[in-house]
Amino acid sequence: MIQRLLIAIVAIILLSPMTSAFAAKVTDGDIHKGDFRWFQFNLMQSIDNKIPFQNQQDTYFEMEFGGRSGIIDLYGYLDIFDIFNSPNSDRHGDTSNPNAQDDNFFFKFSPRFSLDYMTRSDLSLGPVQELYIATLFNVGDRALFEEYIGLGSDIQVPWLGKLGANLMARHVRENYGANDEGSWNGYILSTNWFKPFVEFQNQSFITWQGYLDYKFGADKIADDVDRTSWSLEWFNGFYWHSKQYAVGYGLKYYQNMALFKSGGIAGETSGFGHYLDLTYKF
């Protein structure tokens, strides 16, 4: 399945039409001409997701943000779990399970640095519109700290529009005691998209939005019976957007979530999960 997904992505890219430099490319020296920013609050309900250690059902709060300022293209979010302090939440705490990781928050921060803007050059080639030095930080409040660095791009895909794609190497500061802590171990191929496909007269619209994260080559933990060298997360969200609000449903497919083998010490980490979302935009 993984190979088919990757082949499909490569095929879409290769079959995309040749494009000229993207519209926001700076030619007059003003690198802030195309600046923008956005910020929103999301109230999320997860159902049967495959977070390790049976953290499947939770109502949590998310602060999500992104934008562009000169050379920097930015995306990030902060999740605060068990926002209503509910005993029905899997994140409420499980003192009976010594292996459970009852994190209070998760932080994802992904700045990319435009090589086009830094070099004042048009590096676009065919469907590839812009190149970046891509970075990513995944941080949990107890024992997770992953750092990634590599090459990123924006790719123009037929119908879908702009597809963000990044290939990065993985460095591990903390990983819940795994034997790859303090080392480089593995890679990630990540993509993301946001495609409005139904528009209404009141300027609201419906989107297909999501991401695919494929981690691979994490061989230093493959000798652990409960860990694996690869994982997949594929989120497909369908959202109605207005200027101030959004409502959405997300279907997410997991395989070996967080590099834990499904059915092992971490429980079920493969399969489908569901998300419901209410959003307020600033």
Rank of each mutant, 00 (worst) to 15 (best):
A11F: 04
I13D: 13
L15K: 06
T19Q: 04
S20M: 13
F22H: 11
A24S: 09
K25Y: 11
H32T: 08
D35T: 13
F36A: 08
W38Q: 00
Q40M: 09
M44D: 09
S46W: 10
D48V: 13
D48E: 15
N49Q: 09
K50M: 02
I51S: 14
N55K: 09
T59P: 06
E62P: 09
M63G: 06
S69R: 13
S69L: 09
D73L: 06
D73I: 04
L74N: 08
L74A: 12
D79Y: 11
N85K: 15
S86H: 09
N88E: 07
G93P: 10
P98L: 01
D103Q: 03
F107L: 11
F109H: 13
M118V: 13
T119D: 02
D122N: 14
L131K: 08
L136W: 09
F137P: 01
V139G: 07
G140E: 05
G150Y: 00
G150W: 00
L151V: 07
G152H: 10
P158H: 11
L163H: 04
M168H: 05
A169T: 07
R170L: 02
G177R: 03
G182E: 12
S183D: 12
I188Y: 11
W193P: 04
N202F: 01
Q203S: 06
F205V: 03
T207E: 00
Q209C: 08
Q209R: 09
L212C: 06
Y214L: 15
I221Y: 02
I221G: 00
A222C: 14
D224E: 05
D224R: 06
W234C: 07
F235D: 15
H241D: 00
Q244V: 00
G248E: 01
Q255N: 07
A258Y: 12
F260C: 11
G267I: 14
G267R: 07
E268T: 14
G273N: 03
L278P: 11
